[in-house]
Deep mutational scan, measured.
Amino acid sequence: MAAGGDHGSPDSYRSPLASRYASPEMCFVFSDRYKFRTWRQLWLWLAEAEQTLGLPITDEQIQEMKSNLENIDFKMAAEEEKRLRHDVMAHVHTFGHCCPKAAGIIHLGATSCYVGDNTDLIILRNALDLLLPKLARVISRLADFAKERASLPTLGFTHFQPAQLTTVGKRCCLWIQDLCMDLQNLKRVRDDLRFRGVKGTTGTQASFLQLFEGDDHKVEQLDKMVTEKAGFKRAFIITGQTYTRKVDIEVLSVLASLGASVHKICTDIRLLANLKEMEEPFEKQQIGSSAMPYKRNPMRSERCCSLARHLMTLVMDPLQTASVQWFERTLDDSANRRICLAEAFLTADTILNTLQNISEGLVVYPKVIERRIRQELPFMATENIIMAMVKAGGSRQDCHEKIRVLSQQAASVVKQEGGDNDLIERIQVDAYFSPIHSQLDHLLDPSSFTGRASQQVQRFLEEEVYPLLKPYESVMKVKAELCL
């Protein structure tokens, strides 16, 4: 049975990233139509530049190519590739079939990587351009969430054990800070992308030097003109047959890092959902379990974690691919890159769409948070109580021993009897502590235990987050809708 299948058929496997999760716009960027249309555009740009620099290419040939950029006979191309065992030459023939007058000058002087690699770089750039505003929107939604809850005390956790208090907004800023680093890295790697350009079979530009009869300047002009037509500021000066596969490492490393950030955020949300302090959106008709109707599973956060793990592992592909590119190139890269580049971007696209949807509907339960604080705060307040007693004339050592005994009794009630923490009640009825009984409410005010959390939130948002989001103001209103 021949390899390949009808990918629109229910009898043929289709990647869930495309069929179930990723956005239509990201799927289109990695589609065959987008790819092969870009090949034709690159052939047109090459012909236009070659004509401008004096090669015998007519206006009629150029116009014929322009008129057929979208006229792609995919069936013919597939048949040609089956016959020739070469995808680029299959599309040269297919393009030439609908451009008979231009057929002889299509791909003039070029090698397969002229269309293959340059198209990949265009796709990487455009895919990054799709991700950047999506990530900015996630940051914006979380920034709104953090600002609104900047002063809401909550129990902090280290080692997932109760620690000092923080605020809900401050905790959210930990998430935002990681995503801001990801946004900066995505922008950097996007701006650092260079075009492969017009380089020939081993990167020496020998074929173009021959076409222009040894004119170095025209060869350099050709490279520059096509690079500018493709919208790049610069091209690699040095290439082998391909652009260095280190570029793929750079791009997928940034995406993998984004995956790590999203995994951490969504894990926190899942843990908070278990504590009943916070939940992701839950639709009115949504079913959490087929057997347990009360369940409210954090399905979206779980999906993000599941896909983020996949995204983090994909960076190993370009690392290994770059390491086995012998001399000017081997074909070890080809099949692998067809999979890992598309999957990385479709996965990143999915987790950003999902995280935006989550961040637009996060639900906080202040009463649950308050109750958990009441359970733990008495123990945390013991040092403040000791200091207040010393100020009232008591002995630190005597007070410490009193607190120690009462704390152990209260802990026994919590752990052995399943009761509430009654340390404060014990202190309130103990005559030894009568000098500070009137101060206990103040000493137990949760806001006095959150330090500068709310001020940190305000400063972080104003100095770091809002300036970073400013270039994306025009796209901030787009909502994230999930079908599944």
Rank of each mutant, 00 (worst) to 15 (best):
P378E: 04
V198A: 12
I122M: 11
R20E: 00
Y432V: 08
E328R: 01
E280V: 00
L482M: 15
A77F: 15
S407K: 00
R234A: 12
P446N: 04
P366S: 06
T354A: 15
Q428E: 10
I369C: 11
K402T: 05
S12T: 09
V92K: 05
V92E: 09
T94K: 09
I358N: 11
R337V: 02
V429Y: 06
P467Y: 06
L469Q: 04
H217T: 12
V168C: 07
F30V: 11
I386A: 06
F74D: 15
L155A: 01
R137L: 14
S140T: 13
I106Y: 02
A308Y: 03
S454H: 08
I62G: 02
V465Y: 03
D192P: 03
E60Y: 10
Q61I: 10
F232H: 03
R194G: 13
G393V: 06
D268S: 11
L272D: 04
Y466N: 10
Q325K: 00
P366L: 03
F379E: 01
D332G: 01
F157S: 07
A90T: 13
D349V: 06
K415P: 04
C113A: 09
M389V: 08
S261F: 00
Y365A: 11
K224W: 09
N274Q: 12
S323V: 03
I351G: 02
W43Q: 07
C99M: 11
P133A: 14
R270Y: 03
H93P: 01
H91R: 05
H93E: 12
R33Q: 08
Q285W: 12
A392P: 06
K367R: 10
R33K: 11
L108R: 01
K147N: 14
Y114W: 15
T58W: 08
V254E: 08
G156D: 01
L311H: 05
V254I: 11
L377P: 00
T94G: 10
V315R: 05
V29E: 00
L271M: 06
L186D: 01
E401A: 15
T244W: 03
S140Y: 15
N126S: 14
Q205S: 15
V189E: 13
P471M: 15
L307W: 06
A348G: 12
G394A: 09
S306K: 02
V219G: 05
E220K: 07
V29W: 08
L222G: 03
H159S: 03
R329S: 01
L469P: 01
A127G: 10
M389R: 09
N384F: 05
L311T: 01
A136V: 15
Q375D: 05
L307D: 04
D192Y: 10
V88N: 06
R270L: 00
Q455P: 09
I265A: 13
H93T: 15
S334R: 03
I351P: 02
Q375H: 06
S334T: 13
A453I: 03
D317Q: 08
A308L: 02
A453F: 05
V363M: 11
D73G: 09
C483P: 15
Q51N: 06
H310E: 03
L130M: 08
E283S: 14
G156I: 04
L319A: 00
V219Y: 02
P366Y: 04
N297T: 02
R137F: 10
D441S: 07
D6R: 07
V189P: 06
A322F: 10
L222N: 02
S448C: 15
I176Y: 03
M181C: 11
Q61M: 10
I57S: 03
D178F: 01
D216P: 07
E81C: 00
N185I: 06
T166M: 09
H7F: 10
Q356R: 07
T111A: 00
T227F: 10
G451M: 01
P318Y: 00
V390L: 04
H86C: 00
S151Y: 10
S306N: 00
A410L: 05
L444A: 02
R141K: 15
F327E: 06
N118W: 01
P133Q: 13
Y432W: 09
K224F: 13
L69P: 08
S257L: 08
F345N: 09
V457K: 05
L271I: 14
P293D: 02
E228G: 07
Q428V: 08
I424E: 12
L352Y: 07
T267V: 09
L307H: 15
P366Q: 11
T154A: 09
